[in-house]
């Protein structure tokens, strides 16, 4: 699980984490990590801080001993906006970091799954990783896109409510989480 470096308003580690998926740009180049902008990028609580480094959680909880694996190089949107068309960011990893395509100890197909055009389809199983125990969870993603109000945590303990124009609901056990599509409008 990756999460933003630096500390929040109270001097604590940021408490948001997620998967990072290895990707390459269309014109090639070094592998990058793709994750959500609300995790480590422009929509995260770490936005605006000098530190843009990304850490790798290595234990049951985040720790000052967690290693740095890279830094945020690109976010969409570039800066927080009220309407969110795309919630994604790219992390350039340090030279010593090796990226793998493994989820639940299984190699993935390495192929992105395009769910556009499947609005009437059955809910699909999605694996997700977060900061809270048990960290790795699964859910059923509703393939019908929604436009919805999403609450994003800020570093000072407050929240910003933003308009996600194309989100996919993924009900969680106690709260609702939102996963967003990567297809621009």
């Amino acid at each position: 699980m990756i999460y933003p470096g630096g500390v929040n308003h109270w001097g604590q580690s940021h408490e948001v984490g997620s998967y990072g998926a290895p990707v390459v740009r269309q014109d090639g180049g070094e592998p990058l990590l793709l994750t959500a902008a609300h995790v480590v990028g422009s929509l995260s609580a770490a936005h605006g801080q000098e530190a843009t480094e990304v850490l790798l959680a290595t234990g049951p909880a985040v720790s000052s001993a967690d290693p740095r694996i890279g830094e945020v190089v690109e976010s969409h949107p570039d800066a927080p906006t009220q309407e969110i068309e795309l919630d994604a960011c790219l992390v350039a990893v340090d030279e010593h970091v090796t990226l793998a395509q493994v989820v639940r100890e299984t190699n993935t197909s390495k192929q992105p799954r395009d769910i556009t055009g499947q609005e009437d389809g059955e809910p699909m199983v999605v694996h997700k990783r977060g900061i809270n125990h048990p960290h790795l969870t699964s859910g059923l993603l509703d393939p019908t896109p929604s436009s919805l109000l999403v609450r994003l945590p800020l570093g000072d303990g407050t929240f910003a409510e933003r308009d996600y124009l194309r989100g996919y609901l993924l009900p969680a056990e106690k709260v609702e989480a939102v996963s967003v599509g990567f297809r621009p409008l």
Binding site: A61, G130, H133, L148, V150, R151, P153, V175, A177
Partner: peptide, 15 residues
Amino acid sequence: CVPHAVNAVAPAQHT
């Protein structure tokens, strides 16, 4: 019926 807004992330659980 839904919550007014959904949370992008679950609140952190402190132990």
